[in-house]
Nucleic acid binder design. Structure first.
Length: 556
DNA sequence: GACAACGAAA
DNA sequence: AGGCCTTCGTTGTC
């Protein structure tokens, strides 16, 4: 026992980390690789180790000894033997079952005959596992490759999929020789590592790369495409992003515009490289209709499918993905967290985590700005306080979010940063209109035409407009210019992704000197909003951002 | 055939 | 639990 150590390991696989300990930051970085942060009050953070967090860590190349020794070296009261046993057991599970081809046949194999017996005992699996070939192999129908992995993962038996892929239609994708500059395009070191981690054939050909906003995920996707040299289907979250992929592909590779198609509401171009939105794949005119656009998956001999923002992948696309397991798949995301809990389907159907890069590490290397986070607690104004206590529970969150006392905090913060490009981001149109009227700055929400948006973006970029107020459009607008200050005035309940996305708006490296940016989150004190704010921050705290909490005192 | 306006879906 | 944004596909207009 050593009380000076910062970790307490509990037998339910939760870990407590003291935040004021000198080794806090180092351990935060390590734990994030194989455990999930579940609570982050000021003095003591709680992590939880789950089977899935261990499998993803193992798939990304983290050794069992790295995890256990990290715990053993820093545990105040030692590591309960039962915990070590469980970690070992779960981690080793990944790799016990493997899927592979022998000749043209697909097999589920294992050296562990006990595990084999265990899974055979499940009634729900028996229909996939009838064709046994001795004690260590079961022949699998190719059409069950996805559903079987999905089911086994849910039952606690992840499958390492080393089976072959179809090569798909060949397509030469050369990097463009750039005539206009002397500098040929170069992947950054970590981008190369990510592409290599994905491409390692001995580890299976599909998986997910986890990198922060602004790390260049598109470029990594293009590099993976170029390496695979095949017809590629790219799925992404919205039309702006479709256009962005197309632009990047045309500028970075030797492909011409007649080889790159957009599949969306307006055009249904299926080309060797085709870019589509998740929305069109899951579009139906009526609820009882079928998802007719899912046919896109088999309209061509795709050799690679890229799932951009894989944390947004909708359920019907999972189902379609289960059916195309012989096609290589690459998932790209800033976070494996889904607000709907379908993380295990990403793992089994798109693929395990192959590579991750911590946000703070990119910051240290200078690829991201140094962001300070501040939560400003604002007491409810008198009128809002009455309304808050008199309202039904389901209205209270909004009242707290729209607290008018936030206006004077905004004034104060704007005075603190007079010369820096600033975004105010919020959830409620009414509130944002009020702020717009109060500050005189323009607001962009859903019904502002794109043409007008672009004008405002342009002015903001040139520095002619110092302040821009944006609604939830900020969650989607790929082309929203970068700022140095972000003030979040309200948000959607406990969305960790939204918080990360908004912080992402100020991450791009700053040209002026110290490369710093500030993210403010305005929260009504002693309300529901305060509880949700903590939940929202979890992902960023896991990534090493510390929220400094200040209480707003009314100015006299 | 282009494009604005609208309702439905998620 | 609720609010907002986006996108699709259809209809109406020239």
């Amino acid at each position: 026992m050593d009380p000076s150590k910062p970790l307490i390991i509990q037998s339910d696989l939760s870990i407590l980390l003291e935040t004021h300990h000198p080794e806090f930051e180092m351990l935060q970085g390590k734990l994030a690789r194989f455990a999930d942060l579940v609570k982050s009050p000021e003095h003591l953070h709680t992590y939880r180790i789950t089977p899935l967090s261990l499998w993803n860590a193992a798939a990304a190349g983290m050794a069992l000894e790295d995890m256990t020794s990290c715990l053993q070296q820093h545990a105040k009261f030692g590591v309960p033997p039962a915990v070590l046993t469980l970690i070992r057991k779960y981690t080793k599970r990944y790799g016990i079952l493997r899927m592979l081809h022998v000749g043209n046949e697909l097999f589920l194999v294992s050296d562990d005959t006990v595990v084999f017996k265990e899974i055979s005992a499940y009634d729900s699996l028996s229909k996939y596992l009838s064709d046994t070939r001795g004690e260590r192999a079961i022949a699998i129908s190719p059409s069950h490759r996805g559903i079987l992995k999905q089911e086994l993962t849910k039952l606690g038996y992840p499958v390492e999929d080393l089976a072959a892929y179809r090569s798909g239609e060949f397509l030469d994708i050369p990097w463009r020789d750039d005539d206009t500059t002397d500098e040929p395009f170069q992947l950054r070191e970590y981008q190369k590592q990510a592409v290599d981690a994905f491409g390692r054939v001995d580890h299976g050909g599909s998986g997910v790369l986890v990198l922060p906003c602004g790390a260049g995920k598109t470029v990594i996707g293009i590099a993976a495409m170029a390496k695979a040299s095949c017809a590629t289907l790219i799925l992404t979250s919205n039309v702006t992003s479709v256009k962005q992929w197309k632009r990047e592909i045309l500028s970075k590779t030797g492909l011409t515009s007649d080889q790159v198609g957009e599949y969306s509401g307006t055009s249904k171009d299926i080309k060797p490289i085709t870019i589509a939105t998740y929305q069109i794949l899951t579009h139906r005119a009526k609820k009882e209709d079928e998802f007719s656009h899912l046919r896109l998956f088999s309209e061509r001999e795709w050799g690679l499918i890229i799932y951009d923002e894989v944390h947004l992948l909708p359920a019907p696309v999972f189902r379609a993905t289960a059916d195309i397991q012989a096609t290589r798949r690459l998932g790209l995301t800033a976070t494996l967290i889904r607000e709907d809990g379908l993380e295990s389907d990403v793992f089994s159907l798109v693929g395990p985590k192959k590579y991750d890069m911590a946000w703070k590490q990119l910051e240290t290397m200078g690829w991201l700005a140094k962001v300070t986070c501040q939560e400003v607690r604002v007491p409810l104004s008198l009128q809002d306080r009455d309304m808050y206590s008199a309202s039904e529970a389901r209205h209270q969150f909004r009242i707290a979010g729209e607290n008018v006392a936030k206006l004077e905090v905004i004034d104060y913060l704007l005075r603190q940063h007079p010369d820096e490009p600033t975004l105010i981001i919020g959830q409620y149109i009414d509130q944002l209109e009020q702020i717009s009227a109060h500050t005189g700055a323009p607001m962009i929400c859903g019904n502002v035409p794109h043409e007008h948006r672009e004008e405002l973006y342009e002015l903001f970029k040139k520095g002619l407009l110092p302040l821009l107020i944006v609604s939830k459009v900020a969650n989607f607008a790929v082309d929203l210019p970068d700022a140095a200050i972000a003030i979040q005035v309200s948000g959607s309940y406990g969305s960790r992704q939204e918080e990360a996305q908004r912080l992402g708006r100020i991450l791009r490296p700053k040209r002026n000197g110290d490369n710093t940016a500030v993210f403010y989150s305005l929260v009504s004190s002693d309300t529901k909003e305060q509880d949700f704010a903590m939940k929202r921050q979890l992902f960023l705290v896991e990534q090493g951002y510390q929220y400094e909490i200040t209480s707003w005192q009314q100015e006299v």
